[in-house]
Write a protein that binds this DNA or RNA. Sequence first.
DNA 1: CACCAGGCCCTAT
DNA 2: ATAGGGCATGGT
Length: 204
Amino acid sequence: MDILTLYNELKERYGKPEGQWTLWCKRPKTKTEKEQVIIESILTQRANWKNVCYAVNNLKNAGLLSLEKILHSDDEKLYSLIRPSGFYRIKTQRLKGLCDCIITEYGGVAKAEQEECGAIREKLLSLHGIGEETADDILLYAFEQPVFVIDEYTRRLVKRYNLSDNFSYRHLQEFFENSLNKRDYALYQDFHALIVIDGKEYKN
DNA sequence: CACCAGGCCCTAT
DNA sequence: ATAGGGCATGGT
């Protein structure tokens, strides 16, 4: 099964990714939208998307859906707002660490996204609570870099179609990137979204 | 009521 | 190297 053919079949079946994906797959994004995606990339870790929406709406209603605002908010305040997304204490620390990195070290999203992709990735991975999937979510959906995101749904899809017998993150990422146009970040965004949508659907 | 959701880190083998 | 437990909530 050719990877591009697989993409086209998913695209044929599900069309343009909607719901939670309309923002993540929107192109181009404003600064505010990019910041929301970054915040959501942490909140969505091991969480149901509906719960993430509650947390995001709480932040929005409190006027804190911004990296700068979060960085300067009290922990207790953030605890109460993001509680619905689960793991709220640890996620508050992760969010603040990430905001601190982007605001303090890079001087904001606009500056950060101009850095060399591999260098930012290493930087993100060095932060506590940011692993490969979250780092790549940020690179692909907020910084619009052509980095293919691998997650549990991607692994299940690979297994289902017998595309590979090596399930390490690095191997699968290279596998997808080498099978697709390396400049086409828009394709990467839509493809990952479709894999997740299909994964939820497929799971009888 | 039990099990699950787009992770990640730490610890003990 | 790798399995297992902790982090916590709301949905189904």
